[in-house]
Design a protein around this nucleic acid. Structure first.
Lengths: 337, 337
DNA sequence: CCCTCGAACTGAACCGGTCCAGTGACGCTC
DNA sequence: GAGCGTCACTGGACCGGTTCAGTTCGAGGG
């Protein structure tokens, strides 16, 4: 039971392959009657275009690539990637593009995957995530000439098209809110220090705290896991200058931090206010529910996909600034006791 | 800057395209000297095989498909899919296969995606997840003739190759453990009732409870979200015959249930024991840490990918029974007060 | 020295589409 | 009714590989 080809259709319709091609692609060159006949036959015998054959004629691969460079154990931890992917997907599938996904162990492997995909004509472009400071992938991808959208701040994107959100503004909003509540000792439990968005948030945090004349504003770096979040929290809460508010870089660390505080018989929010980055069901399920910096992650992914498709079409190449994270206040923040 | 082709290599090496093809594919028909020369040139000019051209010759697409039929809001909720995907990926990438991913809204859309992928020669096979009772996808996929591995119990897989784990055994182990602790009133907060694995767990739960002569063993069905988990827990804990132990079908509901219990001033585990299905950082971060049914989800995905690749190669088609979930006891289970 | 055989390689068909240069028929105009 | 333009369609080259039937050549055997 061979797949039907346009040659089969041509034979049945009594026309040439060329005519069938025109008819099926909505191009001029065939009469409406013939077109209808050809479409009917194609439909009847269940013809589908063979993308390989199409791609061979210099056409699009109709797929974009995403290589995630994270150990598997971190992937499950954060809902971020799944939400991002579903957003990217929504945009892609609307244009019948597929997403090629690969989980890789490191940057070299990631570049190897991109090189292979691009070299094999498997993808028309890619999305780069988790930018590092001085990320080696940026110049390498630039050299490959593959259309690429970068999820991250323009300052780190080189000549690639960035899609980004203003994390600095979110940090500022959060700290100002906590200060308005009366907090003077605010700490930050951050993610991996080599990630560029961590650096941006760190700097914004330092700047805002200094600007507001706050006392000590420690930053502790972690690997985003609950264990490290708990350890960082324990350390902060045991210090002589115990902070009255902690801003966490993700939800899982915030929940871990909450548990640590409660273990230490501290009341949240009376003794300690907690803010998490990125909302998730988790943040609403714990007691008290967590005040969070909310992002529309699927939209973020969708915008990135949009820009990438535009880039592939040779159109839009300007940076795209997405909505900044918004502070959603819940029960975990209050004036210090 | 055109992509180099074997014609370019042939020209530079002064041989025919055919010879280059033999050399690059490790086939006999060229001398070792020539082969080395050709490989050197290919390497130097950065040649990569164009998969479209290869696929055109009836070769493999070197990709498998996974269409996830879940609303985006559920995807982020559970680490399950991300872990599954990373496991699938690990196996695929070792064999240079890519994973085509699409998130779809319903079963018809999902079948449309598979039909398109298969018809277009984009994938060599697919993995079917979240089997329903009398799942309409099974006969449809059978008819398409596409190699497919089903993640789910053989009884629901029709003639497709199932990869499954013995959930019944896990349910039995859990209930027997709780009974051994002294519990007599055990409840189950289950997932979507139309999913076949929910039905299997439900039946096992009923059977085991009946077999052990337990009193009432209510089952409440939910949609896997924290909100519904909380509501179900509230309902169970407010009933006249309050259960002393609850087994949840995922981690997020278990955590929500824990919060509800603590809100109701019940001590966990003294007044209520809690067991969650699927371990996650979340389960270890809350107080008390949750007793869970642990599965090696990445391994599960890897095994499914293995079986699928074997199936594509025309080899193995027997069902594969994976390791059953194992009970990992933590602080959330104890004898009833 | 001739014949055979295998290794090494060539040339061309082929996969399933796209697309361009032609071709023939028809209608319109002057 | 000759000339022209347009429409509908044909035939074939082409994309980048694979594969197979030949061809050439050198070595070995009798």
């Amino acid at each position: 039971m061979r797949r039907p080809t346009i040659a089969d259709i041509a034979r049945q319709a009594g026309v040439s392959k060329g005519a069938v091609s025109y008819a099926l692609n909505g191009q001029p060159g065939v009469s409406e009657a013939t077109r209808a006949r050809i479409l009917a036959i194609a439909n009847e015998i269940g013809w589908r275009p063979n993308i390989a054959a199409r791609a061979l004629n210099g056409a699009r691969a109709h797929a974009v690539g995403l290589a995630l460079c994270r150990p598997a154990r971190f992937l499950g931890v954060e809902p971020f990637f799944m939400e991002l992917i579903s957003g990217i997907e929504a945009e892609l599938s609307a244009r019948s593009y597929a997403l090629l996904l690969q989980v890789v162990g490191g940057h070299e492997a990631e570049m190897g995957v991109y090189r292979r995909w691009w070299g094999e004509g498997r993808v028309d472009g890619a999305i780069l995530v988790d930018l590092h400071l001085d990320d080696p992938r940026v110049p390498q991808v630039e050299e490959m000439g593959m259309p690429v959208v970068v999820l991250g701040h323009p300052s780190a994107a080189g000549s690639l098209v960035p899609v980004w959100a203003d994390d600095s503004a979110a940090v500022r909003e959060t700290v100002e809110y906590l200060v308005a509540l009366g907090h003077r000792r605010i700490a930050r439990v951050a993610g991996l220090p080599r990630l560029s968005h961590t650096a941006i948030r760190d700097r914004a945090f330092g700047d805002v705290c200094a600007g507001l004349g706050l006392d000590t504003c420690p930053i502790v770096h972690t690997d985003y896991t609950g264990e490290e979040g708990a350890r960082a929290t324990r350390r902060l809460l045991s210090s002589s200058e115990r902070p009255t508010a902690i801003v966490f870089d993700n939800d899982i660390m915030a929940v871990a931090g909450l548990s640590v505080a409660q273990e230490m018989r501290l009341d949240v929010p009376a003794d300690l206010s907690i803010v998490a980055w990125d909302d998730s069901p988790l943040c609403q399920v714990v007691r008290p529910p967590l005040t969070v910096l909310t992002r529309d992650i699927p939209a973020y992914g969708a915008h990135a996909a949009q820009r990438l498709l535009a880039l592939i079409d040779g159109a839009e190449t300007r940076p795209l600034e997405d909505q900044a994270p918004r502070l959603t206040t819940r029960g975990s923040t209050a004036p210090p006791a």
